[in-house]
């Protein structure tokens, strides 16, 4: 993706789906992991109802990496929450792995996420009383299959923390904590990983290394990645980049200028 960018309108179907999708996937007809139709989110505010998202359409195919960029307060986190089934929209439907979230309650949406969806957060979200190993074990412990501890240990080794498994988060640096969080996101073998500002709390050098790790693992595992970020450099590493502006998603394509709401230079936050 070039630094010259332009903003195109929806529909945001996935013409850019990468061909190196999950092993076994039908390359000629990429399978949609996430489909969004007519999505709107409005919340009550002091002066009536505030529209955060409006008539949003999106389709993300298996193995794709999609960046969602936008200014602070543009609704990126709200959108991420809706896409992951953490919240329900006011209007529209989201189909995750082919299942509509509209008919599911919170428990039903949780069941759909189990083992299929991984998360990486800006503030790592590691539990402070658990060691690195125990934090990585968490997603496996709900429905343990096989030697889950060996699996968690293996993933910590992959992210370069083989020697720090028994350390509590407070004894790890920010970069190390995010590595643990990445291991936790991938350990259950999810088909889809949501990353919310994964480098937002890290310095540039550490952020780059974390981004390398995230994209390497994503490529190796053929996982679908949806990344919310302020960081255009990070966003450019994705197959597609979507800008959230005035409640609508518009595609930011290679060769167009940077969106006004996003950093003009890579690595700088708005």
């Amino acid at each position: 993706m070039s630094h010259n960018a332009s903003i195109n309108d929806v529909p945001l179907t996935s013409d850019h789906a990468s061909s190196d999708t999950q092993s076994g996937a039908d390359i000629s007809a990429p399978k949609a992991v996430l489909e969004v139709t007519g999505l709107a989110q409005r919340v009550a505010s002091g002066e009536g109802r505030l529209t955060i998202l409006e008539q949003l359409e999106l389709c993300v195919n298996a193995g794709e990496s999609v960046a969602i960029i936008g200014a602070s307060g543009s609704g990126k986190s709200t959108l991420l929450g809706l896409l992951a089934g953490l919240d329900s929209p006011t209007e529209g439907d989201i189909r995750l792995f082919g299942t509509s979230l509209a008919g599911l309650d919170e428990d039903g949406r949780a069941a759909l996420r189990a083992g299929q969806v991984g998360f990486v957060f800006q503030n790592f979200q590691l539990l402070p009383t658990l060691t690195a190993l125990e934090n990585v074990l968490m997603p496996l412990e709900l429905a343990p299959q096989g030697d889950i501890e060996a699996k968690a240990r293996d993933w910590l080794g992959r992210v370069g923390l083989a020697e720090r498994m028994d350390h509590l988060p407070r004894h790890l640096s920010g970069g190390e904590q995010q590595r643990v969080a990445i291991a936790r996101a991938f350990v259950a073998g999810p088909g889809l990983v949501f990353a919310d500002e994964p480098t937002g709390n890290l310095d540039t050098a550490t952020g780059d290394r974390i981004a390398d790790l995230l994209f390497t693992l994503n490529r190796e595992r053929g996982t679908t990645l949806i990344l919310v970020t302020h960081d255009l450099t990070l966003a450019r590493r994705c197959d597609r980049c979507l800008n959230l502006e005035a409640g609508k998603l518009v595609e930011w394509q290679d060769g167009t200028s940077a969106p006004a709401v996003a950093p003009l230079q890579g690595g700088q936050d708005v």
């Binding site: 953490l86 083992g115 979200q125 968490m138």
Partner: peptide, 17 residues
Amino acid sequence: RHLDSAALWRCFGASQR
């Protein structure tokens, strides 16, 4: 202290029950 861990468990797919 457990509000965060409960939210994480919910993220990972745990039901209320």
